[in-house]
Computed example of a mutant assay.
Amino acid sequence: MKNKDLKIFIAGHKGMVGSAVWRLLEKKGYSNLIGRSSKELDLRNQSDVIRFFELEKPDIVIDAAAKVGGIWANQQHPYTFLMENLQIQNNLIEASYRFGCEKFIFLGSSCIYPKFAPQPIKEEYLLTGALEPTNEGYAIAKIAGVKACEAIRKQYGKDFVSLMPTNLYGPFDNFDLQSSHVLPAMIRKFHEAKVKKEAVELWGSGTPFREFLHVDDLADAVYFTMNSNMEGHLYNVGSATEISIKNLAELIQRIIGHQGEILWDSSKPDGTPRKLMDSSRFFELGWKPKIDLETGIHNTYKWFLGKRDQLKEVKYK
C-alpha cells in the first residue's frame, strides 16, 4: 500500500502479534494506525464493534485478536476458547465487510489442520481429518474464520486473506506457566531453575517436532500481504525448519545458562507428534523469514529479563 495515510485497525494491538505488526508499520511510516484495548472495545460484543466501525471506518483491518493459550488452558476451558474466538472474529469479519474495508487479514494458527496430516502440511489438507483434541475448540473457531473469509471472497469478491502462522514466539509472549505455549514456558522454567539451581521438569517425552517463527517475521509477512495482490484466500506462514522438543529444550538451556538436569514427565501429553507447515505457496510470492531460531530465542530471553518483574499470572474464569 503506497498510501501511508490509510486507516489501519490492528485488532489485538496489545498482544504479541498485534504489537509486532504495530511496531513494523510505524517503522514503515504508516501514520494512521488504530488500536483499542479490550477495556476500550470488547470485540466479543457485536453492537460495540459495529459502533466502532461506524465511527472509525478503517480501510484495512488486521485481525490479531484472539483468546489464546497452551494445552492446559485449552483443556480446562474448551467452551471459552471456542465461543470467544468465534465472537471476536465474526464481529470483525462482518463489520469489515459491512463497512467496505479494502483489505482484511485474518490471522489463525497451524492447529486448524488435522492432527495426523501428511507432512509438511499443505493448505489443502484443511478439513481432511480429525483435529488435535487438546485445542479443538480454538481450532474449530479459527477454521470458521478461514471459511468466512473464503466465502466473502467467493460471494462478494472482497480482498479477505487468511494467514496461518506456525508456532510463534518473541517479545510480549505469554510466559504464564498455566497457559503459555512450549517455547516461552521453557524460557521461564529454565530461567527460574537457573536462579534456584534446580532441575527442570518438562511435559511429555521430548520426541515431537515443532516449527517456530519469530513474531517479527510474522509481522513482516502481514506487511507483505498488505502490499500484495493475493490470488488465494489461505496461506501458511512458517520457517520451513523444525526441531524436536528435546533439542529445543537443550538449546534454550544453553542460551539461558542453566546447569541442572532436564526431567521429562511422560505421563503428560505430547500433543501432535509433528507439525511442519508447507509455506511454499507463500514463499513463491516472494516472502521469506529472516530470523533464525537461536537468534530469536536470544532476543526473546533478553526481552523476558527486562520484563519478568511485570509479568502477571493469567487467570481464567
Rank of each mutant, 00 (worst) to 15 (best):
S38R: 15
S38G: 10
K39G: 09
K39V: 01
E40I: 02
E40R: 11
E40H: 05
L41P: 10
D42K: 05
D42F: 05
L43F: 14
L43C: 09
R44A: 09
N45E: 15
N45M: 09
N45G: 02
N45I: 01
Q46C: 10
V49I: 11
I50V: 13
I50D: 11
R51P: 00
R51W: 00
F52E: 11
F52N: 03
F53V: 00
F53A: 01
E54Q: 11
E56C: 01
K57M: 10
D59S: 10
I60H: 05
I60D: 07
I62F: 11
I62P: 00
I62G: 05
D63P: 01
A64H: 02
A64W: 07
A64T: 08
A65F: 15
A65P: 02
G69P: 11
G69T: 14
G70P: 06
I71E: 07
I71K: 02
W72E: 15
A73Y: 04
N74L: 04
Q75E: 15
Q75H: 01
Q75Y: 03
Q76G: 00
Q76W: 01
H77G: 04
H77M: 12
T80P: 00
F81N: 11
F81T: 10
F81Y: 12
L82Y: 05
L82A: 07
M83W: 03
E84P: 00
E84M: 03
E84S: 13
N85M: 11
N85I: 13
L86E: 01
Q87V: 06
I88R: 04
I88Y: 07
N90G: 12
N90P: 00
L92N: 08
I93R: 00
I93C: 00
E94M: 08
E94Q: 10
A95N: 05
S96D: 10
S96P: 02
Y97P: 04
Y97A: 15
Y97W: 12
R98F: 10
R98M: 15
F99D: 02
F99Q: 08
C101L: 05
C101R: 03
E102H: 14
E102L: 14
F104S: 06
I105W: 13
